[in-house]
């Protein structure tokens, strides 16, 4: 469980990036953090594995104050995947990349087992002896994921996992997130990608100017004009389409967000006759 209690954070340069933020994420929850550039999203999630320690307030991971723990200690519980794979990869082979993490975290006993599992989970067995630098962008991303998640952390943080990714990569990621979720892991995603978030269907927290603006499910947040506006978000295309249909044609049920919901609504309310 992650608890953020009245946390403020000011960078040494003097920028206050978080102002009195409080929130609670229970085990097994799927959470997205959204909001404008510079809102403090990355700053917030860096508190979850102790990369940043609050200037004011406290952060508890499973009840333990992060101030008293090192990043290495927290990393066994909380895996943090950075946006850019190039910021993490350095070893001669994919296999060594994974071993690096496992050794750092002191998981020597079942190192072999965890390593093979990570290679399998991320479909990297055939690349195990290859240099990470010889792989394509999508493959490098998978190595980066494997190199953090091999330690089998209970909580997973993904900062902007979809930027510049194509559909195949996004779908892989989507599948992965669903799998983690079904395994009971806590997953926190920072993202600008409204359409991707709709597919994940998480609890959404929007952060604006270092403060939490709202906290609710996909319907509450992504189908609410006011909240979208204040969070610098745009509606998913389907939602916008449904709104326009309501304005120009016929009322539809509120909060339409997915393709299937819209088709359902169209069939019952608009084109029932033409079928």
């Amino acid at each position: 469980m992650l608890e953020v209690i009245n946390v403020s954070y000011t960078y040494p340069s003097g920028d206050t990036a978080l102002k009195n933020v409080s929130l609670k994420i229970s085990d097994g929850e799927l959470v997205a953090i959204m909001g404008p550039n510079g809102a403090g999203k990355s700053t917030l999630v860096k508190h979850f594995n102790g990369l940043l320690k609050p200037s004011k307030g406290k952060v508890l991971v499973d009840g333990v104050n992060t101030t008293n723990m090192t990043v290495a200690e927290l990393s066994r519980k909380v895996g943090f995947v950075f946006q850019n794979a190039d910021h993490q990869l350095f070893a001669e082979t994919v296999e060594k990349e994974i071993e690096f993490t496992l050794k750092n975290l002191g998981l020597h006993e079942n190192l072999e087992e965890l390593k093979v599992k990570a290679l399998e989970d991320f479909d990297l067995i055939k690349y195990r002896d290859k240099s990470p630098f010889s792989l394509s962008g999508g493959e490098r991303k998978r190595v980066a994921l494997a190199s953090v998640l091999c330690a089998n952390p209970k909580t997973i943080i993904l900062d902007e996992p979809t930027a510049g990714q194509d559909l195949v990569q996004k779908n892989n990621l989507l599948e992965l997130i669903r799998r983690f979720h079904s395994e009971g892991k806590t997953v926190v995603i920072v993202s600008h990608d409204v359409e991707f978030i709709v597919d994940i269907n998480p609890r959404i927290i929007t952060l604006v100017n270092g403060e939490i603006l709202c906290d609710g499910d996909v319907q509450d947040v992504l189908a609410n004009k006011m909240i979208l506006e204040y969070s610098s978000l745009t509606p998913a295309q389907i939602t916008e389409f449904a709104w326009r249909i309501c304005e120009e044609l016929k009322p539809l049920p509120n909060n339409i967000i997915t393709v299937d919901q819209l088709i359902e609504a169209l069939k019952t309310h608009i084109i029932g006759g033409s079928l």
Binding site: K46, N49, L51, T70, V71, A72, S75, R76, G79, F80, F82, N84, H87, Q88, F100, T101, K103, N104, L105, G106, S147, V148, A151
Partner: peptide, 16 residues
């Protein structure tokens, strides 16, 4: 800033 990000990314993999 980039060096800082890299440091954080590796610390997240247990580098001390």
């Amino acid at each position: 800033r980039e060096a800082q990000t890299i440091r954080e990314a590796q610390m997240s993999r247990g580098l001390e």
